[in-house]
């Protein structure tokens, strides 16, 4: 089956992102495809390129990146939720006159329309909230 995940919990604050990643591994192990992960609400923090967890803890941002490398999973981040919370890619940073940027490929800033689309076009949409 084609799966989409909706992740709404910030990494390291709540279980949501950890659970979503474990669910991702499990569904792939069973032969399903994880086509899309949509980050919304505080879940957008999962896309921070500056995340620097201690070395003896799981690196959640890298774990998402690996899914993209191995499965081609699209990592979509709601632009409205992200900009409010300080997650900007290089283009948005320039547009808003900010010096640094905090989000980069394979994460993509996109609209909520992509979430609606994922809910309709995938066989399953599973939500992980705090």
């Amino acid at each position: 089956m084609r799966y989409a995940l909706l992740v709404q919990g910030a990494p390291y604050s709540h279980q949501a992102a950890h659970s979503a990643l474990r669910f991702a591994d499990a569904l792939i192990a069973r032969g399903h495809r994880l086509e899309t992960v949509f980050f919304y609400h505080d879940g957008v923090y999962n896309a921070s390129r500056l995340a620097s967890p201690p070395q003896d803890e799981p690196h959640l941002v890298d774990a998402w990146r690996r899914l993209n490398e191995q499965q081609g999973t699209a990592l979509l981040v709601c632009v409205a939720a992200a900009l409010r919370r300080g997650l900007l890619d290089e283009r948005e940073a320039k547009r808003h006159g900010k010096q640094g940027y905090s989000l980069e490929a394979p994460f993509e800033l996109t609209g909520v329309g992509q979430l609606v689309d994922a809910g309709i076009t995938h066989d399953r949409l599973i939500t992980f909230s705090p």
Binding site: Y40, H41, A80, G111, V112, G113, L115, V116, D117, I120
Partner: peptide
């Protein structure tokens, strides 16, 4: 919290997409 606002946003966008 922003849950309600962000949930309503999804409803509006869905409707705008013809759902």
């Amino acid at each position: 919290s922003s849950w309600l606002r962000e949930g309503l946003d999804v409803a509006l966008v869905g409707a705008a997409f013809g759902q």
